[in-house]
């Protein structure tokens, strides 16, 4: 149980996907302007990360590795994720239209999101078992959610600020992201000491 907790907490705080691994920067900078959009996007990411891991982990372990096809990992994973996202979108549209309305617009974006492909590949690289991989995906998704929500708060403060012309727009957003990321550095070493 402790092991799951460690994986979970380190995925959320220490190896945060956005702020320390630099994965999923596009949605982090692009969709974090408003809180409700940030929430919608992050929920969609959590959802797709869990689904993608649930599908790609068995594919890698039971299909690719026994047949010595490990080198096909990249190409298979991206195809599986892309078709999975499409499938999920169609199913949601047909059966749960309310959920589709809130998450649907974000789903196609996630196909080419490096955070999703990243989490599936990292799960394999780290040698996680299926349960650990799922916990790691959930943690990564939650970490993404936390970063998005925090950062949308920071950005709403930036809206009204008087910023030098050259820094307006993206540059100041990146500098703000730098400071947000700095705050996450404070978590380094916390988890090891917590369970030591």
């Amino acid at each position: 149980m402790t092991k799951f907790l460690i994986i979970m907490l380190s995925a959320v705080f220490i190896n945060n996907y956005v702020l320390s691994r630099f994965l999923g920067i596009c949605p982090f900078l692009g969709v974090s302007k408003k809180l409700n959009q940030a929430t919608g996007m992050s929920l969609a990411v959590i959802f797709v990360m869990l689904m993608a891991t649930a599908v790609t982990w068995p594919i890698q372990m039971y299909l690719l590795e026994p047949n010595n096809l490990g080198y096909l990992q990249t190409i298979v994973f991206i195809l599986v994720i892309a078709s999975l996202v499409q499938l999920v979108e169609i199913i949601l549209k047909r059966y749960i239209p309310s959920l589709h309305k809130s998450l649907g617009v974000y789903l196609p974006l996630i196909t080419t999101n490096c955070a999703v492909l990243g989490v599936t590949i990292l799960n394999i690289d780290e040698g996680y078992s299926f349960a650990e991989a799922m916990v790691n995906s959930l943690g990564s998704g939650l970490g993404f959610f936390l970063a998005m929500v925090m950062f949308s708060g920071v950005r709403s403060k930036l809206e009204g600020a008087d910023i030098p012309k050259a820094f307006q727009g993206l540059p100041i957003t990146l500098v703000a992201a730098s400071i947000t990321s700095l705050s996450f550095l404070g978590f380094t070493g916390v988890i090891e000491n917590l369970f030591a």
Binding site: L19, S20, F22, F167, L170, P171, I172, T173, L174, V175, A177, S178, I179, S181, L182, F184, L185
Partner: peptide, 9 residues
């Protein structure tokens, strides 16, 4: 990580 964001910005 923070340095990356800062330099890029």
């Amino acid at each position: 990580a923070p340095g990356g964001f800062l330099v890029f910005g």
